[in-house]
Design a binder for these strands. Structure first.
Length: 318
RNA sequence: GGAGGAUUAGCGAAGUGGCCAAACGCAUCAGACUGUAAAUCUGCUCCCAUCCGGGUUCGGUGGUUCGAAUCCAUCAUCCUCCA
């Protein structure tokens, strides 16, 4: 039963799951049934010109359902969780005002969670020069020395980070550098409560089956012209160092196109990396306690899964 | 028929008398994750045990030795060369 506060909070429907489980397909049925507008919860679909490798639905395939947070940046424009959250919040209130249900569908755990819960990124922003300085320091003095420096300003964060995890060590240092406050104390202030009336569904599947689907999907992407897509990006001058080019499929195919490995090797690597990614997604989602799981191993039974999902939604949003 | 080489954990591959349950790589599995997150990072993987620890391994069998994955014999399988 909804409490007073849940009645006053906007509804937010969420569908997560590892890559290639079948989120997209199910999301269309659900969106139609509940008059939803979809917000892509995916860190790579935000980029234009990256369609095949990100398994983006074409406008036609969207069957008239609005899809937000797609194609909002060129591949050389940096994107971040904070921006995702910011835009997401706006979208949610706009969609709610239209009397539609905002529906996040995606596989980027951090992004989805940042929107679902009260993550506060503050105005820490970033400082490229500082990052570079820190990276240089680690290169000359070692990662442990850099970790030591973090220990001095934020021992709590240092405690939980391995000194090899330079990206996080540097960010924690950067947060202190920019705000004068340790990341850990900023985090301690945040409340875990969601600003929304949440209904979160997670799709899962037998691992072997999922891996087969991943491989099959990659083969299809290749047939659909993934290599050309990557080639065009490179020809248009998008560097391999760009964040967008670190995406699965782009990274590996670019390595092939630049002559670093054979196509077979690149494809094999892409499959492996994607399998690993799916595993990581699952381990992220598993700790999300508000999630209701739906096992879609029997991938033929989409009607059954759809019914199951509707039941969960009906239970939450009554 | 003869000569030589090989056989190590899921795979590849070190180890050639004690420091070996066995390096390393891969793959698998598990985990972390608050402005790069499709990124970044950690740990496990012969069996049993939460820990201490215990039990079985290095193609099979039988030896030598206080002690063998490592030495010897023999059998099996594979490869190369000579017939």
């Amino acid at each position: 039963m909804p409490t007073i506060s849940s009645l006053s909070r906007p509804r937010l429907l969420v569908l997560v799951g590892p890559t290639a489980v079948g989120k997209t397909k199910l999301s269309l049925s659900v969106a139609k049934h509940y008059e939803c507008e979809i917000i892509s919860g995916d860190s790579m679909q935000v980029y234009r010109k990256m369609d095949i490798g990100t398994a983006k639905l074409s406008v036609q395939e969207r069957e008239g359902i609005p899809h937000h947070m797609m194609d909002i940046h060129d591949p050389d424009e940096a994107f971040s969780v904070a921006e995702f959250q910011d835009r997401g919040r706006t979208l949610i209130s706009e969609i709610t005002a239209r009397n539609h249900i905002p529906f996040i569908v995606g596989g980027t755990g951090l992004y989805v969670e940042s929107l679902c819960y009260g993550f506060e990124f503050g105005d820490n922003s970033s400082d490229e020069e500082f990052r570079q300085q820190m990276a240089d320091y680690a290169a000359s003095h070692g990662t442990e020395a850099l970790h030591e420096r973090l220990k001095e300003v934020d021992s709590i964060t240092a405690e939980r980070l391995h000194h090899h995890d330079q990206r996080r060590v540097i960010r924690a240092l950067e947060v202190f550098h920019l705000s004068g406050e340790p990341l850990s104390s900023q985090l301690a202030r945040q409340k875990r409560e969601s600003p929304y009336d949440l209904c979160m569904i997670g799709l899962t599947m037998d691992r072997q089956m999922l891996y087969k689907r991943i491989e099959a999907r990659i083969d299809i992407m290749l047939q659909e012209g993934l290599i050309d897509e990557v080639r065009q990006l490179l020809e248009q001058g998008y560097s391999r160092n760009l964040v967008s080019m670190q995406g699965l499929g782009y990274k590996e195919i670019a390595a092939y196109l630049e002559g670093e490995m054979s196509l077979d090797a690149a494809v094999e690597l892409l499959k492996r990396d994607t399998r690993r990614f799916a595993k990581r997604q699952l381990s992220w989602f598993r700790r999300m306690t508000d999630l209701e799981w739906v096992d879609v191993t029997d991938s033929e039974q989409t009607d059954k899964h759809f019914t199951q999902i509707c039941k969960i939604i009906a239970g939450k949003f009554r």
